[in-house]
Simulated scan of single mutants.
Amino acid sequence: MTINPGHSRNPGSDGPGSAELDAALRQFAQRPQILVALDFDGVLAPFVRDPDAAAPMPSSVAAVHRLSRAGVHIAYISGRPLADLRSRAEAPAGAVFVGSHGAEVAMNGDDGADADAVELSTDEADRLAALNSRLASALSRTPNTWLESKPAGVVVHTRGADEDEAARALEQAREAAADFPTVKVTKGHHVLEFALRHSNKGEGLSRVRSSLRPEAVLFAGDDTTDEDAFAILRPEDVGIKVGPGETAARYRVRDPQQVSDVLEQLAELVESRDG
């Protein structure tokens, strides 16, 4: 993966209203068939201590629905399990969902009938149960941390821990998982994920693109796991990094509020094109 340090300026320096991003959005909006793909946490939904309390910003929900009504393809690409992502996204009809970092895909979000569910073999299920037990034991004495079970993995959350607690929890988790060498370990914002299935958001986005065949894609993400999706974007696409950190994305906004501003701006551009 190529990280472009030329686009790792201060957060918000490329935000809504900047000449570069405005020009990119105007050019993107002129294409008849476009796809807007969005991560959930930290992009549509502000971060909260309890992941079960996360909800998308109402202004972003409204803008996404405007884009959908104007004929724009909408996709949600997240590390959250597919069912959880679908239940909280407040998505328009026909949206596509990619959950568990690309391991779960539903090309028709209305009913999920065509969703690719994760089906573990007996051996995988046994290894996942053993890994979960090992991690739970390792973190039992570390306060303000918890485990999240996923269809093919386990996630260690440290958002409520202080810096020392979080570092200790991550070290203990890695040591506990050392006997599971085939498990993929992915570090994100205040999380460490252990997955039996090796998939990523870039693979998920590629699958959506191959199915919908848009002329261009806009993808917005905030986490290190989103870099796999930024890395596969083409010159005609628009990649938007939310928040600080080095990135392969061409543009940057500061926070979910600025994501909402971008979506509203794009909706206006598409509506004016079609009007």
Rank of each mutant, 00 (worst) to 15 (best):
174 R>C: 10
174 R>W: 00
177 A>S: 11
177 A>H: 02
180 F>N: 06
181 P>Q: 03
182 T>D: 15
186 T>L: 12
187 K>Q: 15
188 G>T: 00
189 H>M: 03
190 H>K: 15
191 V>P: 02
191 V>Y: 09
192 L>S: 10
192 L>M: 07
192 L>G: 06
194 F>C: 05
195 A>L: 08
196 L>G: 05
200 N>G: 07
200 N>H: 09
200 N>E: 13
201 K>R: 09
202 G>P: 04
204 G>E: 07
204 G>N: 14
206 S>D: 15
207 R>M: 05
207 R>Y: 03
207 R>K: 15
208 V>P: 05
208 V>S: 09
210 S>R: 15
212 L>T: 09
214 P>A: 04
214 P>K: 04
216 A>I: 10
222 D>R: 05
223 D>M: 02
226 D>L: 00
226 D>C: 06
227 E>M: 07
227 E>H: 12
228 D>Q: 03
229 A>G: 04
230 F>L: 13
231 A>W: 04
232 I>Q: 08
232 I>W: 11
234 R>H: 13
236 E>H: 10
237 D>G: 04
239 G>A: 05
241 K>I: 08
244 P>L: 06
246 E>G: 07
249 A>Q: 08
250 R>V: 04
252 R>Y: 01
252 R>M: 09
255 D>E: 06
256 P>S: 01
257 Q>Y: 13
258 Q>H: 09
259 V>D: 00
261 D>T: 15
261 D>I: 00
262 V>R: 02
266 L>G: 02
266 L>F: 01
266 L>T: 06
268 E>I: 06
275 G>Q: 12
275 G>W: 13
